[in-house]
Design a protein around this nucleic acid. Structure first.
Length: 261
DNA sequence: ATGGTAGAAGGTCTA
């Protein structure tokens, strides 16, 4: 079973590029971030016509996450637990079965950017990461076959940026951000991309500005974290860099894992 | 310090 994550930066603007990528990617499940649509304005038909089941958690203007799946999407929950007043659409969970009889709890997330720092947006990011840590701990304690997939807006280490010195004061790389990331990973999650690609220059985001893509001035901020039970099934992982070079691309490119489930 | 680009909107806000 191949599961991918893709921050598409607007589903309506990305419709041709996304459908083209879906037709080529051989993914069974895709977690989407930044759909920038409400649930009732999401263009469902082209995806359903292409054979995808679809669950969305959207809002007006920005944010918004969704799960596409070839197989049925079950037990869907929307929103990250821990703050009933949080109205930002950044989290969706569902259970999906594989062909081999297994199943996985897929958690699609769009972690807050947090800039500028310091300030309320960075406070919100750190609070959101603490809520994610708590939910992740439940999944670990329950010995679930689980995957946290999405745009984490975290550059885990200096080697995850082409120019690490440019990010030292940024919400994506501040020591508090990295500490919060480690508190989650160190529960027992496997960073699947790093497990298969330990070297430098593995990036998932290149800014639209200043020729970042042409200069390969990228950062690795889209991640797939596997619980121990999921990591036992891990057969491969990668980043589909080519998608960033296509027509009218997102500023992110997809990352994926192959699991024997 | 500024501006560079992009998307959802049809205001600016977000990134």
């Amino acid at each position: 079973m191949r599961i991918a994550t893709f921050n598409i930066n607007g589903v309506k603007a990305r419709l041709p590029a996304l459908l083209d990528w879906l037709a080529r990617a051989e993914a069974d499940v895709v977690c989407l971030q930044e759909i920038k649509s409400q649930d009732h304005t999401f263009p469902r038909e082209p995806f359903e016509d292409a054979g995808w089941n679809l669950e969305t958690h959207g809002q007006k203007g920005f944010n918004g996450v969704a799960i596409l799946s070839r197989r049925p999407i079950e037990d869907v929950t929307r929103g990250l637990p821990g703050d009933d007043a949080d109205e930002q659409a950044r989290y969706i969970e569902a259970t999906i079965s594989g062909d081999a009889g297994g199943a996985i709890r897929v958690c699609g997330l769009y972690l807050p950017n947090g800039n500028p720092t310091p300030g309320p947006k960075y406070d919100y990011k750190l609070a959101w990461m603490e809520r994610l840590r708590a939910r992740a701990a439940e999944l670990i304690a329950g010995e679930e076959t689980a995957l946290l997939a999405g745009d984490f807006n975290v550059i885990p280490q200096p080697e995850d940026a082409a120019r690490p010195e440019a990010w030292t004061e940024d919400a994506l790389a501040l020591p508090e951000t990295r500490a919060a990331w480690r508190r989650i990973v160190n529960q027992g999650w496997t960073d699947a991309i790093r497990a298969f690609h330990p070297g430098p220059e593995v990036y998932t985001f290149w800014d639209y500005q200043a020729g970042a893509w042409q200069k390969n001035d990228g950062i690795r901020i889209d991640h797939l974290l596997l619980s121990p039970q999921a990591a036992d099934r891990l057969a491969g992982a990668g980043v589909d860099v080519a998608a960033r070079g296509g027509e009218k691309p997102s500023d992110h490119t997809p990352a994926w894992v192959d699991l024997d489930l």
